[in-house]
């Protein structure tokens, strides 16, 4: 959408995964628009959102793919995992079943992304304390055991939403700095954009041709 010369030096690809109804689309919307969508219909397939953030003085463009949680979309949404630098894995703290399914989501994420992909666990809807069905402690333990970053958040109030997206980016950036993430690897999920003179097209923003199809 943004046109003109690059005003960022990196692109990080994210995916958001987890059961249907846990608040993935609302988290994305809260992060990109700073608004809560009260009653949004279920996502059809995949959605896309983008925002430019700053980490250690570097402008980073996040390209975020939000996937539908329904089983019938799963085979296809899996193809979006490839080349993700960050994965936000979401459950709903008021619905235990969404927490119980995390190991299946995690298996998918581990199998389909690269070893350096930063996986961030989000316990969403923490504004609904009275309906809590999963304790902070057990989720934290699950996260620690599996090497995941973890926060409870609320797409409704906005609590910890920025933090989750930004902490993921900080961790990815740190992996770049210490050399553990190889930018030249095909599926690192990170593109480096050396600051270029005005007039450079943004088209290689997208791997594919700009017009969509070559028909």
């Amino acid at each position: 959408m943004a046109a003109g010369p690059y005003n960022y030096s990196y692109i990080f690809k994210y995916i958001i995964i987890g059961d249907m109804g846990v608040g993935k689309s609302c988290l994305l919307h809260q992060f990109t628009e700073k608004k809560f969508m009260a009653d949004c219909p279920h996502t059809i397939g995949v959605e896309f959102g983008t925002r430019i953030i700053e980490v250690s003085g570097q402008k980073i463009k996040l390209q975020i793919w939000d996937t539908a949680g329904q089983e019938r979309f799963r085979a296809v949404t899996r193809s979006y995992y490839r080349g993700a630098a960050g994965a936000l894995m979401v459950y709903d703290i008021t619905r235990r079943s969404t927490y119980n399914h995390l190991s299946s989501w995690l298996t998918d994420a581990r199998n389909l992304t690269n070893p350096n992909t930063v996986i961030f666990l989000i316990g969403n809807k923490c504004d609904l304390e009275a309906q809590r069905d999963v304790t902070y402690e057990e989720a934290k333990q699950f996260a620690d055991e599996n090497g995941l970053l973890f926060l409870e958040a609320s797409a409704k109030t906005g609590e910890n939403v920025e933090e989750a997206f930004l902490d993921t980016a900080r961790k990815i950036y740190q992996n770049i700095q210490d050399g553990s993430l190889d930018l030249n690897a095909a599926e690192s999920g990170v593109q480096h954009k050396p600051s270029s003179p005005r007039g450079t097209q943004l088209s290689n923003d997208q791997p594919a041709n700009k017009e969509g199809c070559a028909c």
Partner: peptide, 18 residues
């Protein structure tokens, strides 16, 4: 939105589903 439309399938995936 444009990103969703411009997104091209991985040929391997297409083959797999075919």
């Amino acid at each position: 939105m444009e990103e969703v439309i411009n997104d091209i399938v991985d040929p391997e995936d297409l083959k797999k589903f075919e």
